Amino acid sequence: MKISETDILLIPGYGQILPGHWLLRWRDKMATARVVKQTELHAPSKKEWLETLVGEVDAAKRPVVLVAHSLGCILVAHGAHVLKDKVKGAYLVAPSDWDREGLVEEFDGGDFKPVPTDPLPFPTHVVASRNDPYCTYERSEHLAKAWGATFQDAGEAGHINLESGHGPWPEGMMSFAHFMKRLR
């Protein structure tokens, strides 16, 4: 599947997405990509975030491919059953483990817990780091397996965000291109 033939929905995670983050860079590089803008970035509601995502998917004019980071990955897992008809695939980067107590001091995971472990109804690829402070490598690998996803070891890449040095993240773009080639 070609990027130009799809609507790429970029789904940030918990908190503010800062300029230079790879998601924003991808938005700027792909003409059919747009960021799903959520409200309450520091006190998210699964219901509200899912309604926003469903609205974006419904508004799409082409087949949809989701690209999510952190809590955005968990949102995709929660909403898979209502997204399955229009979504052709999901590329999930650095899922965060909201089942872990004290993951973020300001937010306890709310209604995003428990993290879903049902198989996702569309092709999915998970990229995980060996030293992500928000999810152990083993937990990411377990989630990928439960979701029926292919799994990619990103090495010691932190949370694959600006703080871990992943602004441009060219390796991610190449991995995403390979994922897109597998979709029909």
Rank of each mutant, 00 (worst) to 15 (best):
V82D: 12
V82G: 02
Y134A: 15
H21Q: 14
D118W: 03
I8R: 00
R130H: 13
H159D: 08
H78D: 12
P116W: 14
P123K: 06
P121G: 03
F107V: 07
K84L: 09
M180A: 14
V82F: 09
V82T: 11
S45P: 10
L83C: 15
L23H: 00
A80E: 07
E171D: 07
G167E: 05
P116T: 05
S175P: 06
I17A: 05
E141P: 06
H42C: 12
S164A: 11
S45L: 09
N131A: 07
S45E: 14
S140W: 08
Q16M: 14
K47W: 06
H69E: 03
R184Y: 02
T52I: 15
A68M: 03
V35C: 05
G109M: 09
G102L: 06
G55M: 13
G15S: 07
P63C: 07
E5V: 00
W49I: 15
L10A: 13
S70N: 01
D118I: 10
D108N: 15
K37G: 14
E56W: 10
G155E: 00
V93C: 09
G158H: 02
L120M: 09
W26K: 14
E105G: 02
R130A: 00
S164V: 03
W98P: 10
Y134N: 05
K181H: 01
D85C: 09
A80K: 11
V67P: 00
T32I: 03
V126S: 04
F179R: 02
L24I: 04
Q38S: 09
G109F: 05
W22E: 03
A68Q: 06
L83K: 15
E56I: 06
I3F: 14
I17Y: 05
M180C: 12
L162C: 07
T150R: 08
T150Y: 00
S45W: 02
T117F: 02
A68P: 10
P95R: 08
V127C: 02
L71S: 07
T32D: 09
E106R: 09
G155K: 09
I17Q: 11
W147E: 13
V76G: 14
K46G: 03
G79Y: 07
H125R: 09
S140T: 12
L183D: 07
A60T: 10
C73I: 14
R62F: 04
I74W: 07
I74R: 01
N131W: 08
P44L: 14
G79C: 08
W49V: 04
M1N: 10
H78L: 14
P119A: 12
A31W: 00
F179W: 04
K181C: 04
G20L: 03
A59V: 03
G102I: 06
H142M: 03
